[in-house]
């Protein structure tokens, strides 16, 4: 079994206006040492999945169905006390815009030391040594430990956040838009650094991003999310070169590239649906150029059309 195996995960938010079907029947797996990408537009449920994996659910969120197997243990039924043993040590997360959440009045090193000591019984000196090692691992000068966040640049803060995520030797890191606020040159360095760390520590990494180019560069396999559902899941080359889901195809062709011939960019008509009231059948059908009558009525099944290539579509594209 894979390191992380998500099966039919379904999570809804309860609101005054009704249930928001944020994650609906999502399945995927992550192997040890693998980099996985989750890509989709805002509100497609990709961050909600991350929240489920760590069970950091807000009060109004509820996992209704499905399993999350981490090292063969299902996380879904676990209580807060048990999940605490897995958070950080098993699965840790780099939150979106986390670099802005560093406390400005404490030294960066001390914040990480405190985080470690919150999770492990370890002396202050040992924790300090660990942080120094982590700093070196993420490409920061260990002397920087005794500096305050305002003395850090954006890239350095993000490195510190990565160090913090690595602090308890997790087996999986979930990185939610890890470089969105950064400039390209810094982004490039951070992504390269994360890749190196992943290879060195043989850990699973799950990247969540709206930026297809970033996902293409860092991940080996990609899941494409649309409106709370996984539309397609395959290895990176298949997703980019032979996408079978019309949404994946449209997404790939609406993204401008710096290289290659300058082809016409595609537009997807319409807007992503409201998850309070998602369309019947396939959620993409109102915007899909290939939609047929069955698409409106029946939800497409999640099927493996070729080994390792999953798709939920009635009319997959053939290339």
């Amino acid at each position: 079994m894979a390191l992380l195996e998500v099966e039919n995960l379904t999570m809804h938010y309860t609101t005054k206006k009704g249930d928001v079907q944020a994650v609906d029947g999502v399945s995927f797996s992550l192997e040890r040492g693998e980099a996985l990408g989750l890509v989709g537009e805002s509100g497609c449920g990709k961050t909600s999945i991350a929240i489920c994996l760590l069970k950091l659910l807000p009060e109004n969120a509820k996992i209704l169905d499905g399993h999350i197997y981490f090292n063969d243990q299902d996380l879904v039924p676990l209580g807060e006390k048990e999940i605490r043993k897995i958070r950080w040590k098993g699965i840790s997360m780099i939150f979106q815009a986390a670099m802005n959440s560093l406390n400005p009045v404490y030294k960066v090193g001390d914040q990480i030391i405190e985080a470690i000591r919150n999770h492990e019984r370890i002396s202050e000196e040992a924790a300090r040594e660990r942080v120094a090692e982590l700093f070196q691992l993420v490409g920061l000068n260990p002397e920087r430990m005794d500096h305050y966040p305002h003395e850090y640049s954006g890239g350095m803060k993000q490195r510190a956040i990565i160090a913090m995520a690595l602090a308890c030797n997790p087996e999986i890191i979930i990185a939610d838009e890890p470089t969105t606020a950064l400039d390209v040159i810094v982004q490039d360095r951070i992504l390269a650094e994360m890749n190196k760390i992943r290879e060195k520590l043989n850990m699973g990494m799950m990247y969540i991003s709206h930026d297809i180019a970033v996902i293409a560069e860092v991940s080996k396999r990609i899941g494409v999310m649309y409106a709370g559902k996984m539309a397609e899941f395959a290895d990176t080359v298949t997703i980019f070169k032979h996408p079978a889901h019309p949404y994946t195809y449209a997404l790939m062709n609406s993204f401008p590239s710096l290289r290659g011939e300058k082809r016409e960019l595609q537009t997807v008509v319409g807007e992503p649906p409201d998850l309070l009231n998602p369309p019947t059948g396939c959620r993409f059908h109102p915007r899909c150029p290939y939609a047929t009558p069955p698409c409106e009525k029946e939800e497409p099944r999640w099927e493996e059309i070729e080994p390792g290539h999953f798709i939920a579509c009635w009319n997959p594209l053939r290339h």
Partner: peptide, 23 residues
């Protein structure tokens, strides 16, 4: 350096790395 750092949405494309120091 700036252009070399832009990620390309093509898994088969390998960018040449031009490193510049500092920030």
């Amino acid at each position: 350096a700036l252009l070399s750092a832009v990620p390309i949405p093509d898994p088969n494309y390998k960018r040449e790395a031009i490193e510049i120091k500092g920030g």
